[in-house]
Design a protein around this nucleic acid. Structure first.
Lengths: 196, 196
DNA sequence: GTCTATAGATCGATAGAC
DNA sequence: GTCTATCGATCTATAGAC
């Protein structure tokens, strides 16, 4: 039977939401105690390294989620196009049509980038590599797959920014749909006429 | 003869750099005094509204720069493809191949988004509209131009994020080149085979 | 384990001398 | 105009009662 009392891992989703909303510098311990319902004593019991450790553990938690729900599908789907479709579905749900921000991207833009550099790099490099692998198994040339996967992952980050900037989830939906169609386009050249 | 003593406008570039590097919450007055060389007294003389006014004026300054160096070229270039080429050149130089971050994008992701909502919205909406206008004059259909311009502006934001995340300016260069080629592709359909 | 109290530093902002 | 001094609030982090 799961404990009602929080374990450290139970606090991570709430923590992640605070970091996403306020960024690293904007996330104060006061906001964290409010979001988690835990006092500072408990927080420092779970995370002796303080705020930096909280963010590190959140990043690891996010990475694990993507590993299970996105990267693994790209690696293991019997039909690579199914894995790619699953990726877009998972991403659309995870980012709530662009109303939820990518914490890894937020940290990449900030001045604390160096502190979390390895986590940030691994997350994006793993994502790009997994997508490129699926594209290669789907018949693309290696160079084309590498370029397409890089552009797709960047494109997802871009539509999140633009969706937030214009406060219009339709931008996210259109952008993801465009990226989806582009990857599904018949192989041969870098990109082909997309029916948009 | 220009005064050696700083006017308010003279402080804006240094201010912008601090906000870019540290975000809004991460930008302290201590960092601002260090970057501008001005004491708090002078800063509050120039910006009675404090940090919020500093950020607002910086946003207006950025918007003016893009208006002169990007949007106007898109609007007024005799040949629209020249305006688009000028846009990519200006953007590549401005963002220093992705090593410099887009402050408007950073603010769009943060929790202070609401405070600067109008500036953020105007910046991106103006950019997308100007680019779409150039594409239409270049022979694209209105709907295609609207979609392409939205995807291009999002794509630029995305490659900035990814370049910072992987700390590799080559990603920015490749991404911009891809976007450039895509917009230059012959009209007719949404996108065409790009020679990448 | 979880809390309250609080330390010590830094925050944004103001006052007043010059 | 620009500075220093300083305010009260808030920050991260710690200490110690329970």
């Amino acid at each position: 039977m799961p404990r009602m009392v929080a374990e450290r891992a139970d606090t991570l989703p709430a923590l992640a939401e605070v970091f996403r909303e306020y960024g690293y510098e904007g996330t104060s311990l006061a906001r964290i105690t409010k979001a988690t319902g835990l006092g500072k004593g408990s927080l420092y019991h779970f995370f002796p390294g303080g705020k930096a450790e909280m963010a590190t553990r959140v990043l690891a938690d996010i990475d694990a989620w993507f590993e299970s729900n996105v990267f693994a599908m790209l690696d293991d789907a019997a039909k690579p196009e199914d894995g790619i479709a699953a990726m877009f579905d998972a991403v659309s749900a995870y980012f709530r049509s662009g109303q939820r921000v990518c914490l890894v991207g937020v940290l990449a833009l900030g001045d604390t980038r160096d502190v979390f550099a390895e986590s940030i790099r691994n997350y994006f490099a793993r994502w790009i590599a997994a997508l490129a692998g699926a594209l290669v198994r789907g018949g693309r040339e290696a160079a084309t797959a590498a370029a397409l996967s890089e552009e797709t992952v960047a494109g997802i980050q871009g539509v999140i920014v633009l969706t937030r900037a214009l406060d219009d989830p339709a931008i996210f939906v259109r952008g993801i749909e465009y990226l989806r169609v582009r990857l599904a386009a018949p192989a041969g050249r870098h990109s082909c006429s997309a029916p948009l």
